[in-house]
Design a binder for these strands. Structure first.
Lengths: 125, 125
DNA sequence: CATTTGCTTGACGTTAACGTAAAGCAAGGT
DNA sequence: ACCTTGCTTTACGTTAACGTCAAGCAAATG
């Protein structure tokens, strides 16, 4: 079992200790303590990676928190589970929309690049 | 040539007039005026759609502005054009990373959904 | 003519996601 | 014994992206 200090994780994941403490404040992490120091395990690391990935695709921290809770099978009754399923479907739809957006964006980058090439060619002529 | 009022566009694109004026304030739009009223054309609409798409995939407004400028072939010298090309490549790399992130996220939604199904099945047993 | 409707420009308020500075404990080196 | 290093908490500051009044013009409508 691997253990990390807060600055270990900060270095490895390229974020600040402040950010990590902030995520804890928001209830997304709850590391152990040795005295007053925080000690993180591999599960915490996974959670942090989930947060960072969520952020990269444009989710707010609140949304990232939901994703973490989805990952965490928090003992729920039937109604809650069905609510979860709906949330999962919403996410999936959102992700599919983002895939479309990205494809579209890439096409536009293609044409922008093409115009650049043309302009450079015109310059050297 | 189609012309729109600010609230026309707001309704159609499902944003507020305030947001549209804000984008103009940030130099991303420059609609014509009829008297003191703003009059938007189809090009403005395209720009707005670009902004919204950019936002959906997690770009800041500043980044969206860059994307618009890429789309707009702003007469540049050779060095500027090469700078543009580099930016385009950066974007492309970022988009590819986002594609990976989204695929990964979808896989995790799969397993989350699976656990939900299992839990519901266990409930009804 | 008075009023409503839709636009305008300011200006201040708000939320998210941290940054940053202050002040202090606790372990290890010299 | 002292100093540095790394952690801690508390608290106020900051930026982005608008929201939310407030006050006013201008055309249309009763």
């Amino acid at each position: 079992m691997s253990r990390y200090s807060i600055s270990d994780l900060a270095r490895e994941l390229d974020i600040t200790p402040r950010a990590i403490r902030f995520y804890e404040e928001q209830g997304m992490l709850s590391p152990e303590r040795r005295g007053q120091e925080r000690v993180y395990g591999s599960r915490d690391k996974v959670t942090l990676k989930l947060i960072l990935r969520g952020k990269r695709i444009g989710f707010s921290l609140a949304e990232c928190k939901e994703l973490i809770e989805l990952y965490d099978p928090a003992e729920g009754n039937r109604v809650q589970l069905e609510t979860f399923m709906r949330k999962i479907e919403e996410r999936r739809a959102q992700l599919d929309q983002q895939l479309l957006d990205i494809e579209q964006m890439k096409l536009e980058l293609d044409t922008a690049e093409e115009r650049c090439r043309a302009a450079i060619a015109a310059t050297s002529a």
